[in-house]
């Protein structure tokens, strides 16, 4: 059984001045036990999609089944079986309660028994590997620790599916890594399905089995991160000019005229050249540099998830390509 089936989901925010189409027919299905990522720029509709699936917002059109339950008919049943970690959620705890008191409060809202709650608490302590966050008042915790409490809140009632909206937003890399590690370990160990939105490519690459890219309210790509990168079939040669070296228009023209170079992009002192045959291109580029008396640092890489993201979400790059 699939954890989520969403077909042609549309959402229009209506107001007196204008209507805003946040989702224009999104189709996403998620397997049970998957960690599924949703990537997209600001305003793409990621949060709207997550909120609709987690019963916080009504959709305008489309069909959604969450864990086999119909979103419209079985709302209460869905709420029992899903967890939700909202965006900017670090503040959403009760600051004067301890981490444990916060979790106990929400456990009661989910009608979790005392025994189950204590069991869950032990699991969290083991997976997160830091006991002190449970005994201190939340206001005395760091941002990362507060976020950890919020993330644990999402798993508190042993849900089958957890929706997580930008869980590491605003956190430093160490805290973000710890949160990601907790989510990955806990979800995989317990066989939970997690649907996570993010704008951090490395987060999606590290956590997710599959990913959907949403752009302007539509799903424009959906696959494993590796397949998406492979499909892009992109090899990139980057040139970084040394101090005093200038890329003249003639030099750039020579580069772009190469048969294996498909485009050229200059950014922050870097010259980026997507190529079709890296070996041949590498030699030709070296020769042109030598002819123009330049000795740049040349590096080579294959497509990253960021390139995939830019291909689908940055129209300017797409046109240039």
């Amino acid at each position: 059984m699939k954890a989520l089936i969403a077909e042609n989901v549309k959402k229009t925010y209506k107001s007196r001045k204008k209507n805003t189409e946040a989702l224009k027919g999104a189709d996403i299905d998620v397997e049970k036990g998957e960690i599924f990522g949703i990537l997209g720029p600001n305003g793409a509709g990621k949060t709207t999609f997550i909120k609709i699936c987690s019963t916080l917002l009504n959709k305008t059109e489309g069909n959604i089944k969450v864990l086999g339950y119909d979103l419209e008919k079985d709302e209460k049943e869905i709420r029992k079986h899903i967890g939700y970690i909202g965006q900017d959620s670090e503040r959403s705890t009760y600051a004067r309660l301890t981490g444990r008191e916060n979790l106990e409060f929400f456990a009661t809202l989910y009608n979790v028994s005392k025994i189950d709650f204590l069991e869950r608490l032990e699991e969290f302590k083991k997976t997160y590997d830091n006991d002190e966050i449970f005994d201190k008042e939340v206001m005395k915790l760091s941002g990362g620790q507060k976020q950890a409490i919020v993330v644990m809140r999402g798993f508190l009632h042993n849900p089958d599916l957890v929706f997580a909206d930008e869980i590491s937003k605003g956190l430093d890399p160490i805290a973000a890594k710890k949160i990601r590690k907790f989510v990955k370990n806990y979800a995989k160990e317990k066989g939970k399905t997690v649907i996570i939105t993010s704008q951090i490519m490395s987060e999606i690459e590290e956590l997710c089995d599959r990913v959907a890219i949403i752009f302007e309210g539509k799903v424009v790509a959906i696959d494993t991160p590796q397949n998406l990168m492979d499909e892009l079939n992109m090899q990139l040669i980057e040139l970084r000019l040394r101090t005093g070296e200038i890329a003249t228009p003639e030099f750039l023209k020579k580069l772009v005229d190469l048969e294996t170079v498909s485009a050229i992009e200059q950014e922050n002192g870097f010259i980026k050249l997507p190529v079709t045959d890296s070996t041949e291109a590498f030699q030709s580029i070296m020769k042109i540099c030598k002819d123009f008396g330049l000795n740049p640092v040349i590096s080579y890489r294959t497509a990253t998830l960021e390139d995939v993201f830019l291909k689908f979400c940055d129209k300017k790059v797409e046109l240039e390509a």
Binding site: D88, T93, L109, V150
Partner: peptide
């Protein structure tokens, strides 16, 4: 932002 966390519960 706590209300969402409350209203998503049954």
């Amino acid at each position: 932002g706590t209300l969402e966390a409350v209203f998503v519960t049954p």
